[in-house]
Simulated scan of single mutants.
Amino acid sequence: MHIAIEQAKGRDKAGLWGPAARLLLGLSLLLGIAYPLAVTGVAQVLMPHAANGSLIVRDGKVLGSALIGQDFHKAGEFWGRPSATGGSAYNGAGSGGSNLGPSNPALRKVVAERIAVLKAAGPVPAGAIPQDLVTASGSGLDPHISLAAALYQLPRVAQQRKLSEAKLRALIDAHTEHGWFGDNARVNVLRLNMDLPR
Rank of each mutant, 00 (worst) to 15 (best):
A4I: 15
A4M: 11
E6A: 14
R11K: 15
D12K: 14
A14Y: 00
G18C: 13
P19W: 14
A20F: 11
L24A: 11
G26K: 05
L29I: 15
L30P: 07
L30I: 13
L31P: 02
G32N: 08
Y35A: 14
V39Q: 02
A43Y: 06
A43Q: 12
R58A: 08
G60E: 09
K61M: 08
L63F: 04
L67Y: 01
L67K: 03
I68C: 06
Q70F: 07
H73I: 00
K74V: 00
K74G: 08
K74Q: 12
E77G: 00
F78P: 06
G80F: 07
R81P: 05
P82K: 06
T85M: 15
G87N: 08
S88V: 15
N91K: 13
G94K: 11
G96Q: 06
G97D: 12
N104A: 15
A106Q: 06
R108Q: 14
K109T: 14
V110I: 11
A112F: 01
R114L: 07
A121N: 01
G122R: 04
V124E: 15
P130I: 03
V134K: 03
V134N: 04
A136N: 09
A136D: 14
S139N: 10
G140Q: 01
P143R: 01
I145F: 02
A149I: 02
A149T: 06
Q153K: 03
V157C: 11
V157H: 10
Q160H: 10
R161K: 08
R161L: 09
K162I: 08
S164A: 11
S164C: 01
E165T: 13
E165S: 15
A166R: 12
K167M: 11
R169V: 06
A170H: 00
A170D: 15
I172D: 00
D173E: 14
H175G: 04
H175C: 03
H178I: 12
W180V: 09
G182W: 09
D183L: 08
L192I: 02
M194E: 09
D195M: 03
